[in-house]
Design a protein around this nucleic acid. Structure first.
Lengths: 113, 113
DNA sequence: CAATCATATGCCCATATAGGAATGCGTCAA
DNA sequence: TTGACGCATTCCTATATGGGCATATGATTG
């Protein structure tokens, strides 16, 4: 099987570089599809597809504005990602003392056996 | 084309739920492949494959320990993700309630016109 | 209604997995 | 050296895209 549908998960949605660019762009304000496409130098259908994925995971919302459809950022969905990675904050500052980790592992094994 | 190779990007690497589970598991200390597989209830080859992806993006490191190969967390690669999402912090704290009300009101007006 | 602009979709193709099974490979112990 | 164990690879399959194109759908205006 391939990866789970990007449509169902914020982590998957932001795994695509262009979708991340779209989110960054939308921080500056709402944009119609055509302009998103123009700014990212991608086709209009391409922009629509990425925006659809972002919309389905709730990272953007759209509203009609005449003939246009304005897409705006809804960053709330990024919070879980920020918090999940934040759970590793104390680890990325570690010195990676392998002996410590090994000893901890041994102790844990003895407890479980 | 499909998404860029998961192998070249941390965002892609953590888009896979089981790989996120592996990272969480490794916070508790190093683990041999077999145990990672057992804890996540996946096959050994499955664990090896996920660990390989994580290794190639630098999120885990491995070292030989006799017949075993211990995998340990190297969370530094998660920092960019944390910082990228952090760039949206001020946005997810915004009140979308007011925007919701405004949009709904607009739609209602249009329907009644 | 027709013409037109703005978007969304459907199609097709090439690629990148994730998962399962079988197997290759390296290491250690007897 | 042989056997057992732990792990990595390879092969195969079904699926999920991302991108380009052509076209359908919607909405606006005359």
């Amino acid at each position: 099987m391939a990866r789970a549908a990007t449509t169902s998960d914020v982590f998957n949605a932001i795994a695509e570089p262009q979708r991340r660019e779209i989110l960054v762009l939308l921080r500056a304000g709402e944009r119609p599809v055509t302009e998103v496409a123009r700014e990212l130098r991608i086709t209009q259908p391409g922009a629509s597809k990425h925006l659809r994925v972002l919309r389905e995971v709730g990272l953007v919302r759209d509203r009609k504005a005449g003939k246009q459809r304005l897409y705006g950022l809804d960053a709330r969905g990024l919070r879980p990602v920020h918090e999940w990675t934040g759970g590793f904050e104390q680890y990325w500052n570690e010195s990676f003392d392998r002996l410590d980790a090994y000893v901890q592992d041994l102790n844990r094994r003895e407890e479980n056996d």
